[in-house]
């Protein structure tokens, strides 16, 4: 389950929804990760662009990996502006046993940071500034810069 929301996430509502969806599914562990916008470097918030076709494919691959471990994964992310102290990202793993979920949420969030087609901007003094220095080039980048 992947859902994109405009603006900051309603954390309590989303977690409640996910919990209730799986409360009778016999999973022994529910491990959520909630990302929140910190007040730092004078920013007013962050803003996000998302390319959904590739995000959905990427997420589907992770759903398959989760399925192979008898687990499931859910994710919510913001599009557009998200203000300080709001959440822009929630991911959660449900699995029969805790160890699988703890390891899986770590691998999933790391790959999310390196591969998910989402672009982050700082909101500062009314401007939207691409956070290039905090971004990661997707594996295989630079193909079109090659000498021929």
């Amino acid at each position: 389950m992947l859902k994109i929301y405009d603006g900051g996430l309603a954390v309590a509502d989303i977690l409640k929804e996910w919990y209730e969806e799986e409360s009778l599914s016999n999973y022994g562990a529910f491990i959520p990760f909630i990302g929140t916008i910190r007040d730092e470097d004078g920013i007013d918030g962050l803003s996000f662009d998302i390319y959904e076709p590739i995000l959905e494919k990427w997420f589907k691959e992770w759903q398959e990996k989760a399925k192979a471990k008898n687990a499931i994964i859910k994710m919510a992310h913001s599009r557009g502006d998200v203000l300080l102290h709001q959440s822009s990202y929630i991911a959660a793993v449900f699995s029969p046993k805790r160890r699988v979920a703890l390891e899986f949420i770590d691998e999933f969030v790391e790959d999310f940071k390196a591969s998910a087609p989402i672009w982050k901007y700082d909101l500062k003094n009314g401007k939207r500034i691409y956070a290039l220095d905090r971004s990661t080039a997707i594996k295989g980048s630079g193909l079109l810069a090659k000498e021929q």
Binding site: P53, I54, K57, A137, I138, K139, G140, S141, G142, L143, L144, A145, K146, Q148
Partner: peptide, 17 residues
């Protein structure tokens, strides 16, 4: 941008020119 961008064809990432 050519130096740091990945390329997709029909929404699948590719690795060969």
């Amino acid at each position: 941008w050519l130096e740091n961008s990945a390329v997709a064809v029909n929404d699948t990432l590719v690795s060969s020119l």
